[in-house]
Design a protein around this nucleic acid. Structure first.
Lengths: 366, 366
DNA sequence: TTGTACGCGTTATCAT
DNA sequence: ATGATAACGCGTACAA
């Protein structure tokens, strides 16, 4: 592979001049610029990014550490991250599918020197502690951490409020025997959603201990299987809150297979508002989480931090999780195909930031 | 940030010794190893990967260039890539959401020096040519290229055969007035699927020009809207082939909204076999594409190429796309929740590799 | 406008 | 077993 030296030699100039062509265009005369560009093209010269990173101490790359990549939530999350990063000329160094805190530490070490900052989402609070180590070296933005970590920015989704609102919705509709299909035991989001569920029951004067909580794993199949447990109850619950849409849809399928008419025989509400939630029958009432926005905001905060050289105070942003009423709980709301993410559409260089509202307002604390 | 020099100084040894501790453990005495490790820990020293990359000419990183990240196909694709890469200690440098060939060239240039190889999927044949430039510098594995490119490995899905089989299925069921919801005009996969559709019609002695082809964009909403066109036809088609599951599900939703009973009033078949295809009602007959496997295979081929230093002959693997019959076409097949990807499950360090055979014969079954 | 020389943080090759 | 030093490919003061 041709190096800057090869080009310099072939063009009869010094490497400094070649370098300048690729950086401070202005400082070199038009004719030599043309010559060098021509020779570089012939030699198929491309500046070596590793060498550049080393000396410039800038990589234009963001490290992204995710617990998993399964499902539309992560899909949209990483899409949002990549999209905003791409707009600013940044690339993504991705690492995922971890088998423990050890693993995640290794991955982050392997990133050091090749990234300008890290965006991280951890499955459990234990692994979250990893962030502390990294934060001393590069800026860190945490996604949905269980608790804040010293020196790290945070972007979170208001899982608690969302779950509470969803459950309240069922309660308001008159349901009294509720069930919940929970997410993975050690998953922070899952835990928060479960807490929101419990809280809503308490708010309504019900005993949360009496509610049926069926373990799940966020996959469709676990929701499907949960139907068996629910149908076996006597008296049977009349409404179910699933900790995510995948499980809710799996559950609905099983319920319908067993001959239940939805929403009349059973109300179902999910969480996430994945695209397909609006296209199943009946359309699924759910809690809208804009995963793409979550990722996008994280990138923006990171880039801001990177811009101002001095260490800025850590930000904490909480994205709202609004109830989205469709028909799966009994209210004939029809379909809603307008669950789009306008800020993700092509080329608004300054994307609309989510609007701060009531419950689960976006709070920006310096 | 502490460098190797800081550690060496603090430990009273040379940088060479410190370096050896992190590489050829054996060549340095146990006591100095311990000492250095202790000091390194205190100083929170982490070797700078950029510097390492520069001199070792190995980055343990794979560049991944994707046209988009929207939908379960890409989600699973990147998951497969990351999973297999992670198993071998590789990270992923990701770039996506391109606005043209220019953009994609820039991105790949920004990767050079920071990656050992590139896995690339291009939306259109034009951008595919980019691969030729890269392939001179690092190994390249192409995903579903329209046509083979000199010096690049290829992993493809047999879109043509899959679409042909899906259409034939409808034909065998007795349908004669078929419609298709197509994918994006310039998308290679979409085009191949459309060709398969046409071919099946020709095979059955039908005129493909008479079949209704409705434009779509692979998103659910375009499938939903297609229903309007279909319902407006007279005589109305009795069966629809959608170029992917998302559009198929959108279509089904709209059809059901309009009061049609599926599959009796209309048969629908999709493409991809996304997880949710088995959980909508009626369960969607589709063509199974293992996107995760597609990505995983690409990584494996890349790693093989990287291992043997000499330039090996380029490989070409075509993954089958099998028809998966559920109930949406009229055959009461029930649900099938066993669409799992066994090779993607945790920790089989040497995943079963699908056997490469001829065109579309590769079996990926457990 | 252009060239020289140093440094970025590391590994590798020779010595010792 | 350990140390000195030359690469790796590039950006940039500083000098010319």
């Amino acid at each position: 592979m041709a190096t800057i030296r090869d080009v310099a030699k072939a063009a009869g100039v010094s490497i400094a001049t070649v370098s300048r062509v690729y950086n401070n265009q202005s400082l070199v005369s038009p004719q030599t610029t043309q010559l060098i560009l021509k020779i570089a093209d012939e030699l198929e010269y491309v500046p070596n990014s590793a060498a550049r990173n080393l000396i410039m101490r800038r990589t234009h790359t963001l490290g992204v550490l995710l617990p998993d990549l399964y499902g539309e939530f992560y899909s949209e999350l990483i899409r949002g991250i990549e999209l905003v990063a791409h707009r600013h000329g940044f690339q993504i160094l991705l690492s995922s599918s971890f088998h423990g805190p050890e693993d995640i530490v290794m991955a982050s070490k392997a990133m050091l020197g090749r990234i300008d900052g890290v965006i991280m989402m951890s499955p459990d609070k234990r692994s979250m502690r990893t962030a502390e180590k990294i934060s001393g070296k590069v800026p860190v933005v945490l996604l949905n951490p269980g608790e804040p970590i010293e020196g790290c920015h945070v972007v979170a989704v208001d899982n608690f409020a969302g779950a509470r609102a969803a459950t309240k919705h069922l309660l308001d509709l008159g349901h009294r025997r509720l069930a919940m299909v929970a997410g993975p035991e050690d998953n922070i989001d899952a835990l928060d959603r479960q807490e929101g569920f419990r809280r809503a029951l308490i708010d309504a004067g019900l005993d949360p201990e009496e509610a049926l909580v069926i373990p799940g794993d966020f996959r469709e199949l676990s929701g499907f299987k949960a139907a068996r447990v629910i149908m076996g109850q006597d008296p049977r619950p009349t409404a179910v809150f699933a900790a995510n849409d995948g499980m809710a849809i799996g559950l609905m399928a099983a319920l319908q297979d067993k001959g239940l008419a939805l929403p009349d025989d059973m109300a179902v509400v999910g969480f996430d508002d994945i695209t397909l939630a609006g296209f199943v029958t009946p359309p699924l009432t759910t809690v809208k989480v804009d995963a793409g926005c979550l990722g996008g905001r994280a990138v923006e905060i990171m880039l801001e931090t990177l811009d101002m050289e001095e260490t800025a105070p850590t930000q904490r942003v909480v994205l709202p999780a609004h109830l989205k009423v469709r028909s799966s709980c009994g209210i004939p709301a029809g379909r809603d195909h307008f669950s789009r993410r306008p800020w993700m559409e092509p080329e608004p260089h300054h994307p609309e930031k989510p609007v701060a509202t009531e419950y689960g307002d976006e709070e920006v604390q310096p």
